[in-house]
Nucleic acid binder design. Structure first.
Lengths: 231, 231
DNA sequence: AATCGTATTATGGCCTACCAAATACTGTAG
DNA sequence: CTACAGTATTTGGTAGGCCATAATACGATT
């Protein structure tokens, strides 16, 4: 019985991540940050060599990424990095709008000061990252802003869905935040969400959240349709 | 672009489903319709024997189901059928409400008679299935009702999300539809959605869709909390 | 020269067999 | 009756091989 206490206290983060999970993260990251480009073939045996793992592991990873929508499987040709078409991106933003709007409304209706405080903290972090031109930081802190929004009202499933969809548009996100004026307008829109939550204005919070996503979507669409002809 | 048309016309169906996909469907179905119960261990080699395939395939299938949320992986103990707790179910219904509400609103705003016709067709099919006490038919036709709702306004991604979430609560669904009076009220609520869409009343359609899901959620909650103590 | 087989290669799908480490089980000695 | 050692079970992971198919290259025939 004495054992139960000790390992709860000194619990080290991830004592045993399986090789598969490590490989999964590596490949996902490689796709998300553009090391593998959309349309690239992902040849099993090559990945084995590059990752230093066996085909079994690689195949499981590819299966997983396939179900995440990051990888598409052409019959008789094998896996490639999924192409993101503009319509799909639009749909993903729309879903995010619906879910983030829902979460924002719930936050407002709960009316707890801790939520506002936590959101404001993320928001300041975002502003600082923008000021330092730390784009990776912007992304991370934006994520944590939304994570707060969802988890403070215990909507882990919805947060999971949003996360799942977000990886598919991640390179879009990194382009939208680099847009001129986004450094001002983005945080401004987000602070409107926070304001509405502070006022306990559910309707307003929902609308503000949806507006913010809609703005991001519009920028993404512009970016995407501008680069399509270039290919 | 001319290619898109022609092969849609003569498209031969999928003659060659891979063994993996077959196995995936089999196992998923076995979980969904209760052959494997929540908490059951899914021993790789046993599954190999039962499915008549190799471990390679079984492992990929388990990975896939894990990312679908139907299977949970205990570290160093292996995969089990995921347990559905009541809070998670509630969240899933809530998300469905948000997305189906969105789709219903879009259908109403588009105001195309084909949509109404297609929905009405599904609705009659549901009524017939209820009349014949064909519960599998009710589920299938309800699915196709919602599929229509999403795909008629080209929201394939959202439909995918709803589908993904729905398998996790499938056994709940089959219990809720067996509830007394559900055979009347269910179709009634759905016809309210259709009515609102026919009127072009986006707001009303959204509310009707959310009401319908909320009703299902309430029943599911009752069912679930009634059976929990029994275990 | 153009076209039509045919060999080769690349690759995915699937299988068997094996090993190591963790966990659960069991039987025995003290 | 407990503690401990040994054994079985099972996952995580590896290695390698077989077969089918698609694409490519190459050579032969008209």
């Amino acid at each position: 019985m004495s054992g139960a206490l000790k390992d709860a206290a000194i619990r080290v983060e991830r004592p045993a991540k399986t090789l598969r999970e490590l490989a999964l993260d590596k490949v996902r990251e490689a796709i998300v940050n553009g090391y593998f480009r959309p349309g690239d073939r992902l040849v099993e045996r090559d990945l084995c060599a590059q990752l230093g793992v066996s085909r079994t592991v690689v195949r499981e990873v590819l299966r997983h990424l396939e179900s995440e929508g990051l990888v598409a499987n052409l019959p008789n040709k094998g896996p490639i990095v999924a192409q993101l078409d503009i319509d799909e991106a639009r749909q993903i933003y729309e879903i995010r709008g619906a879910l983030e709007g829902m979460a924002a409304r719930l936050c407002a209706e709960r009316g707890s000061p801790e939520i506002v405080a936590a959101l404001e903290e993320s928001l300041t972090a975002i502003r600082n990252s923008y000021r330092d031109s730390d784009m990776a930081g912007v992304l991370a802190n934006t994520s944590s802003f939304y994570q707060t929004l969802f988890t403070m009202v215990d909507r882990h499933v919805a947060w999971g869905v949003v996360n799942l969809l977000t990886v598919r548009i991640n390179h879009l996100r990194s382009m939208t935040i680099k847009t001129e004026r986004r450094g001002i307008e983005g945080p401004l829109q987000m602070s409107k969400i926070v304001d509405a939550i502070r006022r306990g204005d559910g309707e307003g919070a929902q609308r503000a959240a949806m507006d913010h996503v809609a703005a991001a979507s519009a920028i993404a669409e512009a970016v995407l349709s501008a680069q399509k002809p270039a290919e």
